[in-house]
Design a protein around this nucleic acid. Structure first.
Lengths: 346, 346
DNA sequence: GGGCGGAACGTAAACGTTTTCATCGCGGCT
DNA sequence: AGCCGCGATGAAAACGTTTACGTTCCGCCC
C-alpha cells in the first residue's frame, strides 16, 4: 500500500507495466500521448522506481564502493571529495565503507558490496593479494590506491612516497643546510609510511652521510605527532629539523614544540607530507610535500569508470604513480620569516 | 558464468537453494553436517550473495543515505565521520550524495535512493517541505539536519545557532569589553547563517546598544572570509572584533589580517563558529563556538536507526537542538578561562 | 482485396534471493 | 499397527523491474 510500484502506475494509467517502463525510461515504442499520460500518473502517484529491483535485472547499480581504512583527517576527506566530484560528474553514487578495524571487518564489508556496486576503489593497508582474491567478486572492476600490489590484477594508483620524501630531505639538507634531521614515521605496517621512510633513509645517506639517523614511530595522527614532539623535547637533544611522514603528525609536533617554547623554524624546522588544506593555515605555514589528494581520488574514479565502460577485458591493469612536489612555506626556514605570499586562499 | 549464484552452490552441494540460504544465513532447519558442507562449497566457489536480489525480497538494504549540499571543508567531513562511526557500530552502510548544485540535482539524487537505502539523513538548505514531499518516498524514514522545518513530519536535529552566536557576541562585548563587533555572515538563503545573524543582532542590541552594526556577506568558505578581511582592511576603519559565522571564514579572515599586518587579537579580535579540528591549530588559536559535529552526525544516525527499528509509526517526530558552548582560545584576547555553556533548548 | 510491414502495446520470462508451504522419513506413543 | 508430531528438505511463489517475444491493428502496395 504505502509504497507505489510500477504496477500501480500501470493500472492507474490503463496500460501494461512494460509500457510504463518504456515511457519512463524513454525507450521508444510508445505514443507521445500515452507517454504523457503515463508520466502524469507517475507524477501524481509519486512513483519512484525501486533501485534494487531495477539493478537486479539491469546488472547496473550506478554506484561505486570505496573501502577506506578510516575517515579521520583531511587526507581521507579530501580523497573522498575527489572521488565524489568525479563520480557526480559521471552520474555515479558513492557507497563508502570505512570499516577496517580488523581484517574480518574489511572482508565482511567487501562481500556485502556484491550486487550493490558496479566497481570498487580500495585503499587498504591490509589488503594483500590473497585477501582481495578471497573477498572480491570475480568480475568486479576494482582500482587499488596506495597498494604494494603492482598492478598484476588490478590497476593501482600510488603516490610517489619515496620521491617526495627524498626530495624533502634533500631540501632540508642541501637547500637549508641541516644535517641532524629526525623522522617522525608512520605505522610500520603501512605501505606509504614504509616508502616514505625508505626515501628518508636513502636521502640521508646521500645528502647527509654520517649524520645521526633518528626515527620516532607515529601513527599518522595529530596526537602521535604531538607525542613525538614531546619525546624530542624530553630527550634534551633537539634535532635541527623534523620531517614528519604526514601533515597531521607535523602539526601535532608543531604544537608540542610551540608549547615547549621552541622557535620554529629558528631552532627546529618542521615539515610534513600530503599538503592537506590545513597546512597553509597553521603557524608557521607548513612546508610539505604536496600530494594532489583530490586529483588522486578523481583519477582513481576515472580509471574505474574506464574499466566500467570497457565491456571487454581488453584493458590491461597497470600501475601509475602520482608525482608530488615539495611546497616551501615558512616552517622549514628556507624563506624569510613571516612572508607568506604563496598563501592563496582557495 | 563468471558470477557464482546461490544456484551454483546448491547444485555443487547437492541440495536446494533454500537449504543454501538457510545454512548461510544461520536460520535453523538444516543439519550441522549439511550446513558444514554447504559452507565449504560456498567458500570454495567464493560465493557472495547478491545484495540487490536479497534486499529486493528482504526489504532491507542495511544502508542509509546521506544527502549533503557539499563535501568541502571539515564541517562536512566531520559530520560524515560521525554518521559513519555510528553506522558502522550498527552494521549499516553509508551512501553519500553531495549532489546539490541545483534543486533538480538534489531531487534526482533523492529519487534514485528509493530501494537502495533504508532511511535518509538530509542536510540541505534548499530542501523545503514541498521539495521533500515530492521527492521522498512516502514511507522512507528520514532525519533532517539543520532545517527550518520544525519536526512536523520528520525528526529534525538543529544546532543552537542563535544561542551560540548570542553567547559569542556576549563574550566579545561583556567579557572582552568590545563594542565595535563586525559580523562576517553566511549565505543569505542558508538557515544556519540566518540564525547566527539573528543571534548576533539580538546580542548586539542587548550588550552593545548603539554600537555600529557591520555585516559582511560571505559564503562559508575560506576564500570568502579572506575577501571579507581584505574588505575590512580596505575600508580603513577596522572593527575591534570580527565574528565570523563559521570557522573557515574566520581562518580566511585571520590570514587576510595577518597579511595586512594587523595584530590579532591585539588590534582586532577574531572568532568563529563550529570548532572544526583546524581551529585549535591556527595561530592565534581560534576562539569559537564549539559544535560537537561528530556527535551531531552520530545522533542523527541514531535517531534514524531508532526510526528504522520502530516498525510502527508510533514514534512522534520532534525537533532537537544541539546545544553548543563557546571555547575560548587566543584569538579573542581574553584569558582562556574555559567554557561557557549556552542553555540547551529543548 | 489480400498480404505485408511496422508501430504500439501486452505477456511472460528473467534477475538472485528469501520464505512459505508441502513433502518425506522417522521415532515414540497408545 | 496405526497415528501423530517433528525436523530436515525441496518446490515454488514472491519482491519490482526490464526486455525478448507475441499479438493486434493499421495503412499501403500489388
Amino acid at each position: 500500500m504505502t509504497t507505489v510500484t510500477i504496477k500501480d502506475v500501470a493500472r492507474e494509467a490503463g496500460v501494461s507495466v512494460a509500457s510504463v517502463s518504456r515511457a519512463l525510461n524513454g525507450t521508444g515504442g510508445v505514443t507521445a500521448e500515452t507517454e504523457k499520460r503515463i508520466r502524469e500518473v507517475a507524477a501524481r502517484l509519486r512513483y519512484m522506481p525501486h533501485g534494487a529491483a531495477r539493478s537486479l535485472i539491469t546488472r547496473r547499480t550506478h554506484t561505486i564502493g570505496a573501502l577506506l581504512p578510516d575517515m579521520y583527517g583531511e587526507f581521507f576527506s579530501e580523497l573522498i571529495r575527489g572521488i565524489d566530484l568525479a563520480a557526480r560528474a559521471r552520474g555515479l553514487h558513492l557507497l563508502v565503507s570505512s570499516a577496517h578495524d580488523g581484517v574480518d571487518d574489511g572482508a565482511a564489508a567487501l562481500r556485502t558490496m556484491r550486487g550493490r556496486v558496479d566497481g570498487m576503489i580500495i585503499l587498504s593497508p591490509r589488503a594483500d593479494a590473497s585477501f582481495l582474491h578471497a573477498n572480491l567478486p570475480e568480475s568486479l572492476p576494482t582500482v587499488l590506491l596506495n597498494s604494494p600490489l603492482r598492478g598484476r590484477r588490478y590497476p593501482v594508483l600510488n603516490i610517489d612516497n619515496y620521491g617526495g620524501a627524498h626530495a624533502m630531505v634533500r631540501h632540508l639538507a642541501v637547500t637549508c643546510g641541516y644535517r641532524d634531521i629526525a623522522l617522525v614515521a608512520g605505522p610500520q605496517d603501512n605501505f606509504d609510511a614504509q616508502q616514505r621512510e625508505d626515501g628518508y633513509r636513502a636521502a640521508m645517506a646521500e645528502f647527509a652521510p654520517g649524520a645521526p639517523l633518528r626515527v620516532i614511530r607515529g601513527e599518522f595522527t595529530e596526537e602521535s605527532g604531538y607525542r613525538a614532539g614531546r619525546e624530542l623535547l624530553a630527550s634534551g637533544r633537539l634535532p635541527r629539523a623534523v620531517f614528519a611522514a604526514n601533515d597531521m603528525m607535523a602539526i601535532g609536533c608543531l604544537l608540542a614544540l610551540r608549547e615547549g617554547g621552541v622557535d620554529v623554524p629558528g631552532e627546529v624546522a618542521v615539515t610534513g607530507f600530503d599538503d592537506i588544506p590545513i597546512a597553509r593555515y597553521v603557524t608557521p605555514a607548513l612546508t610539505t610535500v604536496q600530494v594532489r589528494i583530490v586529483d588522486l581520488g578523481r583519477s582513481a574514479l576515472e580509471r574505474l569508470a574506464a574499466l566500467l565502460d570497457a565491456t571487454d577485458q581488453a584493458t590491461t591493469p597497470d600501475a601509475d604513480i602520482l608525482g608530488c612536489e615539495i611546497v616551501v612555506r615558512d616552517s622549514c626556514g628556507a624563506r624569510p620569516h613571516g612572508k607568506t605570499s604563496t598563501n592563496k586562499a582557495r
